[in-house]
Amino acid sequence: MEGQEKLLEIHHLHKDYGNGAVLKDVSLDIHKGEVLVLIGPSGCGKSTFLRCMNGLEQIQSGEIRLDGEVITDPKTKWSEVRQKIGMVFQSYELFPHMTVINNILLGPLKVQKKEKKEAEKEAEQLLERVGLLDKKDAYPRQLSGGQKQRVAIVRALIMKPEILLFDEVTAALDPEMVREVLDVMLELAKEGSTMVIVTHEMQFARAVADRIVFLDGGEVVEMAAPEQFFTQPETERAKRFLDTLSFE
């Protein structure tokens, strides 16, 4: 990754909810086109870390830069920054009172003030890609969990973000629906999207990641290429974590 353009730079990030640090001095660079997967035991701060990246959580100290510009300033216009940093959540967070197409169009029409026809065409193309064009006028309640997550991904994609954050997007899904969502993400990775993914699906992490970041106790414990991390983890903590996941 050396020499590539740095998209998101995180320096000495410190996050505290008031009862002990959740993230301690975390530093990380994310390069353009890179797929970074955050893994670690429950409560290690990986979701919080992700939420700090688009300002859903306030940080106590440290700095985050997007395209070289500091975005953790009190003067940050988050509504502008968040158009460049898309996010998909764990729970199905579609807006239940809107149809699929209107869920997708809300951002382009109200935030980016795009032409309706043009935005609608783009939305349809994206829906087609995830195989849900026929659900365009359905309400979220009529969709399965996997379908909802694919719509949520489209809703983030249509904003043309520079980077996409995925917060355990398959954790609330029935097992048979996980694959269809992961496939969409794999495809995005192949196309060169920059993504930061928090997941518990280790096989998927191994397949999709350019780099694995192992977090434990609010610290970056290990950072390595997936093959290296899963076959020869360097640290004791990473070894122990991987051991708890296997039955051998």
């Binding site: 859903l56 959540f89 807006f95 951002g107």
Partner: peptide
């Protein structure tokens, strides 16, 4: 639910728009 506010915010909507839409 709280995540309705958050997913609106994550799209870049401003607080006023989140309430309105």
């Amino acid at each position: 639910p709280k995540h309705q506010y958050e997913s609106g915010a994550a799209l870049g909507l401003e607080s006023r728009q989140i309430y309105r839409y």
